[in-house]
């Protein structure tokens, strides 16, 4: 069974004056352990597709199966729980709770999951060390650079032991050194732990590092290529 299976997925935003057909008949399979980027010009539907996969929005028709489960059939409150247990999220910016420290932000998601205190402590320290922020555990988001904040977000995303991580433009607000640093970390997590990462991006630095590039154009898959 594939990790993610998307079957003739359509999304039409019809709350607007002119309905927008943002995704048209998408069929796609992503396996466990992949390191994949969804690319395409602005407005091509990358964020929309990621939102569908992450259960943040519901399809107009078609299915998104995660580990064989059709997530659009899950009720709203259980869907939140499903996301908590299965999906890690990294957004473009302002991912973190500003009043909490790096450590508390990473711990927060495990608190939601009900992970024991000792386990939380252990995972948090390990992960913050892994993303190179071992010396910043007590810093608040505003005391961290954009790149450091994104690393905390990555640490939080995988702290919950999700099946995969969705990252929408994670490097968009970063300078190239920070972006490369962040990608190194995610690549390593992918290789060492087999963590699946799905990016939506138009950043070439990301595109160069992934193994598979799915290109969207005008809501349709234009190409889907595996690269070394």
């Amino acid at each position: 069974m594939p990790l993610i299976e998307i079957i003739s997925l359509n999304k039409i935003y019809d709350k607007t004056k002119v309905p927008v057909h943002a995704l048209k008949d998408i069929n796609l399979t992503i396996e466990k352990g992949e390191f994949v980027a969804i690319v395409g010009p602005s407005g091509s539907g990358k964020t929309t597709l990621l939102n569908m996969i992450g259960g943040l929005d519901s399809p107009t028709n078609g299915k998104v199966l995660i580990n064989g489960i059709n997530i659009s059939k899950i009720k709203s409150d259980e869907l939140i729980d499903f996301r908590l247990k299965n999906i890690g999220f990294v957004f473009q910016s302002f991912n973190l709770i500003p009043v909490l420290t790096a450590k508390e932000n990473v711990e927060f998601i495990m608190l939601l999951q009900g992970v024991t205190k000792s386990e939380r402590e252990k995972r948090t320290i390990e992960l913050l060390n892994a993303v190179g922020l071992g010396d910043k555990i007590d810093s608040r988001p505003y005391e961290l650079s954009g790149g450091q904040q994104q690393r905390v977000a990555v640490a939080r995303a995988i702290a919950s032991h999700p099946s995969f991580v969705l990252a929408d433009e994670p490097t968009a607000n970063l300078d190239s050194t920070s972006a490369e640093g962040l990608l190194d970390i995610m690549k390593e997590l992918n290789q060492k732990l087999g963590m699946t990462f799905i990016f939506a991006t138009h950043d070439n630095k990301v595109i160069r590092r992934v193994r598979r590039v799915i290109t969207l154009e005008d809501g349709k898959i234009k190409s889907d290529v595996f690269q070394n």
């Binding site: 247990k85 999220f89 302002f94 500003p98 939601l112």
Partner: peptide, 16 residues
């Protein structure tokens, strides 16, 4: 609003 959106996305129950 955005912060709450992120919290709901990552899995914070509405009751919380």
């Amino acid at each position: 609003i955005r912060e709450f959106g992120v919290l709901i996305a990552i899995g914070m129950k509405k009751i919380k």
